[in-house]
Amino acid sequence: MDYKKVTVFLFFSFFTLWLSAQSYQELSGKAVDYIEKDSLLQAEKLLQEALKLEPKNPHNALLFSNLGLVQRRLGRYEDATDSYTFALNFAPLAVPILLNRAAIYLEQGLLDKAYVDYCQVTDVDKANKEALLMRAYIYMIRRDYKAARIDYDRLLELDPQSYSGRLGLATLEQKEGKFRESLDLLNKLIAEFPDDAMLYVARADVEREMDHNDLALIDLEEAIKLAPASADAYLLRGDIYLAQKRKSQAKQDYEKAISLGVPPSELHEQLKQCK
């Protein structure tokens, strides 16, 4: 007899019987405990059982939302979006649920769906900073810079010290060719956050566009010193070296970026030019 298989069978049999004896409140409460302990599969099972017990309970908005959280942490994004959608069937204007679903849509590259959710959030809460920031980001990708500026301005009106808002606005100024305005914003951010490598990369990119490559290389050297695993810094420095015909140095930086996780296919053309 395979005692290991028998033990596993008995465990799941007792677990199933135990679940059936629990009430809706007990199951949902214990599921939260499991989430806090990061025991996600157990939490998922409990939440699903609670939902089966009372499928029409209005509190299922919270249970489906928790289920979405669990599935998102497990990396099962489609299941998570389904759970958040079910939650919204019970509470259509629940801002936290809309924000969570929008974030998953963004992670999946579903910008149009994320945009709809962020618009719904701002319809309910015109001062929601997360929705304004992420909608501005979507506008930037769409190159709708006028709409992006409206959202960034509104965000900074609500929170003048917003790091993400100011960095986003600096990027917008750069996209519109307003390099001095972009540098002013980045210089102020670097004065406040001198150890933030990403800010040096951002400033170097503006300096590169202004043909101030020497300054850009100094900033990238500082960025790499602060964050040796910054693939973006190596990529940008590689681009500058390549433009300067310093092919061997460019190749080294591109290869370093690949070692840090950049797909080789994205740098195929650049590496060809390094030969």
Rank of each mutant, 00 (worst) to 15 (best):
L217V: 10
N66R: 13
T171I: 10
K256A: 12
F11T: 12
S23F: 03
W18C: 09
F64C: 07
G168K: 02
E221G: 15
A197Q: 09
K37A: 08
Q244H: 11
L267N: 04
A43L: 00
V206Q: 07
L158K: 01
D125F: 00
K225T: 14
F64S: 06
T122K: 07
N66H: 10
A148I: 01
S182F: 05
L69Y: 13
L19D: 08
L186M: 06
R76Y: 14
L236W: 09
R208F: 07
Q108L: 09
D219P: 05
D159P: 06
C274M: 10
R154I: 04
A257T: 09
A91I: 05
V201P: 02
S265D: 15
A147Q: 15
E36K: 14
S182P: 02
L155Q: 01
A21R: 15
A91D: 12
F179E: 05
Y24R: 04
R208V: 04
R166M: 07
H212M: 14
Q71P: 04
V116S: 04
G68H: 07
K256M: 15
L10Q: 13
A191T: 06
K37H: 09
R166Q: 09
S23V: 04
L156R: 08
A197I: 06
I97A: 03
L41C: 07
L40K: 02
A80M: 03
A257M: 02
D153G: 07
E107I: 08
